[in-house]
Amino acid sequence: MTDQPLSKIISRPRSPSRGRGGWSNQVSGWLLAAPLAAVLLVFLVLPIVMIVIVSFWGATEFSIFPAFQFDNYTFLFGSEVTYRVFLNTIKYALITWIFTLLIGFTVAYFLAFHVRTLNWQIALFLLCTIPFWTSNIIRMISWIPFLGRNGLANSTLLSWGVIDQPLEWLLFSDFSVILAFVHLYTLFMVVPIFNTMMRIDKSLIEAAVDAGASGWQTLWHVIIPLTKPGIMIGTIFVVTLVMGDFITVRFMSGSQSANVGRLISNDIALLQYPSASATAVILLITVLMVIGILLRFVDIRKEL
């Protein structure tokens, strides 16, 4: 082999871009981030700005006009409906959160600590996540044959003699709304919790067992505290998805229940964009406040 003399390789000057935080690093960083920044500017920042602006505009029955008035907010805060709907939204979020957390944690715990080979873990994990890549609307429609008046649930219960008459509250009720939420969003809990659990050093659990901890004690004092970041990320997903939803509530409640998202979409359908925008601004502030609180418990950048 005809290698270059070693001295020549070693003395080769380091390229300036190698220094961390150097000027050329800054420029190439900006250039690489430019497309991302452009998309987020046009399709995230500007829409928010636009909504805030329009929330101060006025509206007639057919059109909207620029103005700077607080009418939309005055109306919003003056109406008893607003408070009821916001409360209902928070109720949905809270109940869904409890169920998705309990189910998601149990499923992730089973996958991470009771399934022994990695291949089985991957296979079962994929089974849990595949529905995420299919249509939410179809998954909602799929509940009709189950929950309808003549659906599977009712006919089974009737034939068992548990009930004499079909239950009316199975479909188009708060029950079906929350069932659909849990069905759609549990995997947003499973994935981050499983991810965090897989990173727990197994020797910590052995240590707990060796020190005489029972199964429950290990779970409560070792596993749950170490899984907290995953739980928080899952919580952020579930809570924001439920709070921002409008289609699940509309479809699964048969337009009988309302949440904030539906309030907004109803205004949109009536072309009342300024009042829809005002509601949207309040919703956004509420969601960001919730996230702000949750983010105090977890550093997302560290958890990826």
């Binding site: 800054q26 987020l40 909504i51 949207a280 919703l283």
Partner: peptide, 27 residues
Amino acid sequence: KRFAGSTLLFYLIITSLVIPSILISLG
């Protein structure tokens, strides 16, 4: 590369994820 403004951009990404979808649609 930890360029200036990367933290802001990171939080924009998170916002884009958690913002209620109807706001994007409306805006």
